[in-house]
Design a protein around this nucleic acid. Structure first.
Lengths: 198, 198
DNA sequence: GATCCAATCTTTACACTGTAAAAATCATGG
DNA sequence: CCATGATTTTTACAGTGTAAAGATTGGATC
């Protein structure tokens, strides 16, 4: 009971393999990005043979999809938390969004990467969790804008935030500046947290 | 002389292999995305054995880098052309930017993908051509904004445009609308900020 | 023109990948 | 205690990138 199920091995039945695979895969993801995801390496690190994963995931892409789903869920939580905080602006949500991407660059890339994108087409759970993030933003906008302006404003904000997240992940920022502060400055240019346009 | 060097084969010496490899690779890229890039498949389509490519590229990543460099060059041209056109706004440049991504989704993904990103670190030519696109925008901003506002405005605009390009590539847009018009509407929101709060 | 050379391409080989199929091991309810 | 079902391993195959060595060729030099 007190044994660490994540690192246990030696027995034939691992006992806690699915979560272990996911956590190991996630570590791999942050070490080398989506390209570095390898069933064999995952198995190796989990102390298990490669095909063992096939009992829980029908393919490497399926495992990646599970990771991405985790990612969307966590991202959604972070945004919720930010919106519930002291600064309940959309701006706070955007900052949290970018911070999530910066904290989990490999995962974020996976979530919007193409290989996965193709696989996710058939996966309803992922389309749903992805849409949930989108809706968090849209709901807020609907309370503040005329109905006919919402769609474009939502796409505008998502583009800005998504793009900023990716550029920051790519290291496209002067070294030596606080990324959170920078993100806030840039997102503010959208005119969001401000009471009114100048 | 009048033979099509792109499809010639049969002879031991292909005669025009490097450009052929690049063009074949590019086709592959647009068929299946960066993940589908395969030296062996490239060789197959070029009518040549796989290691033949190693005379012109030190690795698959090097070939991908050459493609990305092409991409940045073309993107830069498109932006220049747009800025020289009747509507010499930055907006026109942004629309051209997004249109390029939409016309070459595989290439655009490669240009900003991670595998390539890692490889490009050492490649000076690519950092340069990438910076050139950035500078096109920055130059324009410097003519219109206070010096201390330029950096953040540039990052803001690039984030917005880059994000919009990627979301459109991902099909994140209602079907049945003209993508160019949509891009214009969304990019326009950057100028005035959001419409006034309700 | 014959000959040599350097550039170009092929063959072969190796280590790696995902994954299908069958066999082994174990946990558990009857 | 045993049979069954869940779990994991072994084995095998087709695919990949690429290193090394050999074959082929076009062009310069005599």
């Amino acid at each position: 009971m007190t044994t660490d199920m994540t690192t246990d091995r030696g027995r034939y039945h691992h006992g806690n393999l699915r979560p272990t695979l996911l956590s190991v895969a996630r570590a791999l993801l942050e070490e080398g990005g989506p390209e570095a995801l390898s069933l064999r390496e995952i198995g190796r690190r989990a102390g298990v043979s490669a095909p063992a994963a096939y009992h829980y995931f029908s393919s490497l892409d399926a495992l990646a999809a599970a990771l991405a789903e985790q990612g969307f869920a966590e991202l959604s939580e972070r945004i919720d938390a930010a919106l519930a905080g002291p600064r309940r602006h959309l701006l706070a949500g955007g900052i949290a969004y970018v911070a999530f991407a910066r904290a989990n660059p490999g995962l974020y890339r996976l979530m919007f990467g193409e290989g996965f994108q193709a696989y996710a087409k058939g996966n309803e759970a992922i389309g749903a969790s992805r849409m949930r993030v989108y809706r968090q933003m849209k709901d807020d906008l609907e309370r503040r804008l005329a109905p006919e302006a919402v769609a474009n404003a939502a796409l505008f904000l998502w583009s800005l935030t998504h793009g900023l997240a990716l550029l920051m992940i790519d290291g496209q920022i002067e070294p030596g500046v606080d990324p959170d502060a920078k993100a806030e400055e840039v997102l503010k240019l959208a005119g969001l947290g401000l009471p009114a346009a100048k």
